[in-house]
Simulated assay, not measured.
Amino acid sequence: MERSTFVYDGDCAFCTKCAQFIEHRIPTGARVLPWQFADLDTLSLTEAECEEAVQWVGADGSRAAGPDAIARLLGDSGPLWRVAGAGLRFPPARAAAWPVYRWVARNRHRLPGGTAACSLPQEARERLYGPAGRPTADA
């Protein structure tokens, strides 16, 4: 793999807003893309893993999920962001990051940019909105 990849849930408005922030504010060489448009087989990821948490697949084949993936993304970025990434990897911060990450994941539909669709399981989102996130004819 040539570049590291950060994978997020493209059907979630909150996640998409966060990914846009990354793309516009965090200088990284990693690809930032929704899992719905990623080649999961090439990345050795499953839909279940991507529904569970954001994913990092390093150019070296290393993998991380959730706040560990965010720390890896930040570590692959500009100097100030690398400091933030190192801080997130610091054991006490890492221990606190996982419960916070899980809370955000459960409540992302309530956060700025979130929508009701963010709280639905992937299967329900696809049934209502189709695989590309647009409402289906019968929804």
Rank of each mutant, 00 (worst) to 15 (best):
S4Q: 11
G75R: 11
A97V: 11
G133F: 03
T115K: 13
R106A: 14
P92N: 06
L45D: 08
L45G: 01
Q55I: 10
R127P: 03
C50T: 05
P91A: 04
T136N: 15
R108C: 11
G66K: 01
T16A: 15
E47M: 13
D138Y: 01
A124D: 15
E52D: 12
G85M: 05
R3T: 13
T16C: 12
S77R: 00
W98M: 13
A95H: 08
D60T: 06
G87W: 03
D68P: 00
A117S: 04
P79D: 04
G61Q: 10
V83N: 04
D60C: 06
R25M: 12
R127G: 02
F37C: 07
G113L: 02
G87N: 02
A116I: 03
G29S: 14
G130Q: 00
R127T: 10
Y8I: 01
D41F: 04
V7N: 11
R72T: 01
F14H: 06
A96G: 07
G61D: 10
H24T: 14
I22Q: 02
D39R: 14
G66C: 07
R82T: 03
G78K: 03
E51C: 14
P92Y: 07
A95E: 04
P135R: 05
P135I: 03
T115C: 12
D138C: 00
R127F: 04
F37V: 12
P79Q: 07
Y8F: 10
A71K: 05
P135N: 00
R108V: 09
E2T: 15
C118A: 15
D41C: 01
R134G: 08
A38V: 09
M1A: 13
W35G: 10
L128A: 00
Y101L: 14
R63T: 13
A71Y: 02
Q122F: 10
R89D: 14
G66D: 11
A105W: 05
A19L: 10
C50R: 07
A105F: 02
A69S: 14
Y8G: 01
E52P: 01
V32F: 08
I70W: 08
G113M: 00
E126C: 15
A96K: 08
G75M: 11
W103A: 15
V54H: 08
A65W: 14
A93D: 01
V104Q: 07
R89V: 06
P121Q: 06
V7G: 11
H24A: 11
A132D: 15
G58T: 11
G29R: 12
T28R: 03
P121G: 06
T115S: 14
